[in-house]
Amino acid sequence: MIQKKICLLGSFAVGKTSLVKRFIHGKFSDKYLTTIGVKIDKKIVHTADFTAKLLIWDLAGEDEFQKVRLEYLRGASGYLLVADGTRRETLNKALILKEGAKAVIGKKPFVLLLNKADLDGKWEIEPNLVNDFVQKNWIVMTTSAKTGHGVEEAFQILTREMLERENN
């Protein structure tokens, strides 16, 4: 079976670990337990068109004092770039990390996730901004690890993108 390494990249507490937990175990917890270093999980993705085994590297989030070690990305075929829709500054951080990722693994498929969509009352990201990304042909999705909205799709779309790129 085809095997792909993917990473979750983003600022601290945007919900990277929660997205993986939702995707793999179908669960969610409100309690915040920060990730140190990197946690690796595995899951097989099935769709009508393909089956692939994902090695999911959930990286520690970046904060003011600790830079993400982007070397962890080596060998990754793609990544989920995660921002917290209720914290505008995490989007900027995501864009910086995207540049960093490019320096390590080159141009690879990614999906930008604006997570915590269930908290729309606190939403800080203007639709205009999202339009700008869409104009650039980026794949942007809103997700919620809490309700599960968009989570399965995000992993599937990334997998599809990675496999398509490989076939071309």
Partner: peptide, 12 residues
């Protein structure tokens, strides 16, 4: 973990 958890919680 002790350090990072505290720091991140304070920032949130």
């Amino acid at each position: 973990k002790r350090l990072q958890q505290k720091g991140n919680e304070v920032r949130l």
